[in-house]
């Protein structure tokens, strides 16, 4: 298994897309060396807009570019991308259903050192709440490349969050990425673990551990948080003794909300591995923070045992 960095894969894919399509334009709020939008800048300086430290203007400017037929990729950290220009995204982009892609980099707790101000625990919730918005979180670099290509083809607003740190490859190379389509990465019969983004790896690890205890877990990668077909989730949870969600995000408005709402008429025990409505903080590594918040395979295993009374 290899290791990839979502930011780098994103930046490289953007360059490839830029070669294929003259209408791809990229906007950045002075974080290009981190978001890796700088790769696009190096190759296509005329289609790269450094918008300085002014996110509100950046998003509305991107809306204007999209009105001339451009596919605008807007870059900054997830916490700023979803928070600072919320109104610009809502009013200028989503009401008009414009072709603007908001890329939230260093999402979740992955900017571990910078603390609560730079960590996003609620970006998915904010973006999911806006009508017309498609919301995506990815499990690894392989899925990132496929997803960047898919959202470039899709005509409409998208919010996509990316993790800052290297991630092990998980997503099958031959698996197509389809917006709105959850993917079963490991099948099982006792519990369904719906996992998002960086928690898909730990979910697979947890499933392997649970297997040793005689518990068979199905692991589902939910990379599109919206739109998603409730029936798809109902079918994937059917016959299970329990359902768990796992996400590097608040339990409010993220994957736990998606799955519990879909299963609102399904009497199945449910547990969430998520951030418990609190802000992050600084730490010396991403893993240290994830462990602190119980966002790891052990956390998922505990919930599985809780549900199954094991």
């Amino acid at each position: 298994m290899g290791v990839h960095n979502q930011r780098r894969v994103y930046g490289e894919t953007l360059v490839e897309l830029g070669r294929e399509n003259n209408n791809i334009v990229v906007l950045e709020a002075d974080l290009g060396k981190s978001t890796m939008s700088c790769l696009f800048q190096n190759e296509f300086p005329e289609r790269y807009f450094e918008m300085s430290i002014a996110e509100a203007n950046m998003v509305s400017f991107a809306a204007g570019l999209s009105l001339t037929g451009k596919i605008a990729f807007v870059n900054t950290f997830a916490v700023f991308a979803s928070g600072r220009p919320f109104d610009q995204i809502r009013q200028g982009v989503c009401i008009g259903r414009l072709n603007v892609k908001i890329i939230g980099s260093s999402a979740g707790l992955s900017d571990f050192g910078d603390g609560a101000t730079h960590q996003s625990v609620e970006d998915i919730a904010i973006m999911r709440a806006i009508p017309n918005m498609t919301v995506i979180a990815l499990c690894d670099g392989i899925e990132t490349e496929k997803a960047v290509r898919a959202i470039a083809k899709y005509d409409g607003p998208v919010y996509m969050r990316l993790s800052r740190n290297d991630l092990e490859d998980i997503f099958p190379e031959d698996q197509e990425f389809v917006i709105g389509k959850p993917v079963v990465l490991k099948d099982g019969t006792d519990i369904a673990i719906f996992a998002m983004g960086t928690m898909v790896g730990p979910a697979l690890k947890a499933a392997a551990e649970l297997e040793k205890e005689g518990i068979s877990a199905r692991v589902i990668n939910v990379s599109t948080l919206k739109p998603i077909d409730d029936n798809e989730i109902i079918n994937l949870a059917r016959g299970m003794k329990g359902v768990i969600t796992a996400e590097e995000h608040s339990y409010i408005g993220g994957l736990a909300s998606v799955v519990t709402y879909a299963l609102r008429n399904t009497p199945v025990p449910f547990e969430a591995v998520a951030i418990n409505d609190c802000f992050g903080q600084s730490a010396e590594s991403h893993q240290e923070l994830l462990d602190y918040f119980g966002l790891n395979s052990e956390g998922i295993i505990r919930k599985a045992r809780l549900i199954l009374g094991a």
Partner: peptide, 19 residues
């Protein structure tokens, strides 16, 4: 363009002009 939330239309216009 969709305007009404004040302050945004000039930025949108800039984007169109740049396009």
């Amino acid at each position: 363009a969709n305007t009404g939330s004040l302050g945004q239309g000039l930025s949108i216009s800039c984007g169109i002009a740049a396009g």
